[in-house]
Design a protein around this nucleic acid. Structure first.
Lengths: 187, 187
DNA sequence: TCAGTTCTGGACTGTCAAGTCCAGAATCCT
DNA sequence: AGGATTCTGGACTTGACAGTCCAGAACTGA
């Protein structure tokens, strides 16, 4: 049984945890920092998350996955113009945030995957759903005759996703990689 | 001035460090463990690496990058049969090592990138060289007429690399993803 | 051989972060 | 109002791990 105030506090903590998690991953994630930025205390942390750090991380990951899927669902990539726009936007976003975690899913994935298997399945689920979305869009394009009738929609979706993730990783080490995504268009 | 014995000890430490680093990344990397598995002591670590952990990590990363580039250079992917074989081998390798770090570069990258910018540039260099190798192979294929004359070799190389990296990340969360690489072949 | 150098072991210190505990404030319910 | 419940703050304990220090063993070269 928790009051409205309690819920709010809990939410504040989770929110701050997501931020820290996206930036530094589980490894560089420290509870005190979250507590400090939210101006809460140890007591509260363990009040809302009896299992401490682990439980908080799980909650934060879940929250983040939900958030990401919600935003990615907002775009409909069912025609070439939309794709072009999306590619441009993505590349631009990557350029802006330059070194720092252009793709948040990739960021999460790379960092979370080393730890709890529980979190791992959350991330897996996110990928599957995302791939499903893309495949759905491509399916529609095929129905509209924008794609060859024998186009392997699922494979293409996987490829898009992989390029996106891989590109994010490589970007992080190198510089800009527009060509990565341009190469996709020939599929 | 170091003796042969000293060199050997140093090498042993670096070698063990690479193993730990590949498995757990800088974050989960702990010096005592390396010392224990190599049956060496604090004294030796700081004898050979006056700057401690950081210096050891740098040395280990460098070592690993060298190793990886050396092995990847051994394969010549300049015809479709070779590609097919390579894809099969890669997928099989991923399946075997299943959850555990199929692609070691990806593993390194994901984990090392969060830390020292010095290490980052090492990884970047590894990527660039690798991409260069692939592009070279493709170039040869184009010259042999196996690829269309107007094929954007560099873009393709980047794509292959990105798919490989992204696939590794996604694999780690999910299951097998053969189609990823198969989709590549249509380029 | 033996003085000088390099190598090795391990006890010790300092720091940082996770988790515990409990007293007191705020809030809820009747 | 007032007892029960929930929320909050922060001191304290514990543990892990990086890094220090130095004594003594092993090796080198003359």
């Amino acid at each position: 049984m928790t009051t409205a105030k309690g819920m709010a506090t809990r939410a504040r903590i989770v929110e701050a945890a997501v931020d820290r998690l996206v930036v530094g991953g589980v490894a560089n994630f420290n509870v005190d920092e979250v507590l400090h930025t939210t101006r809460t205390s140890k007591g509260q942390l363990f009040h809302y998350f009896p299992n401490g750090k682990d439980e908080l991380c799980a909650a934060a990951t879940e929250r983040q996955v939900d958030r990401l899927l919600a935003t990615s669902r907002s775009e409909r990539l069912d025609n070439w113009q939309a794709w072009d726009r999306w590619v441009d936007a993505t590349v631009r976003r990557h350029e802006q945030q330059s070194r720092d975690d252009a793709c948040q899913v990739a960021a999460m994935a790379g960092r979370v995957l080393d730890t709890e298997p529980g979190l791992r399945s959350l991330v897996a689920q996110a990928y599957e759903r995302w791939a499903g979305q893309i495949a759905g869009d491509l399916e529609r394009m095929r129905a509209d005759g924008l794609l060859r009738a024998d186009a392997p929609v699922d494979d293409l979706a996987s490829t898009v996703l992989a390029v996106l993730q891989g590109g994010a990783v490589i970007d992080k080490a190198t510089g800009s990689h527009d060509h990565l995504r341009r190469a996709l268009h020939q599929a």
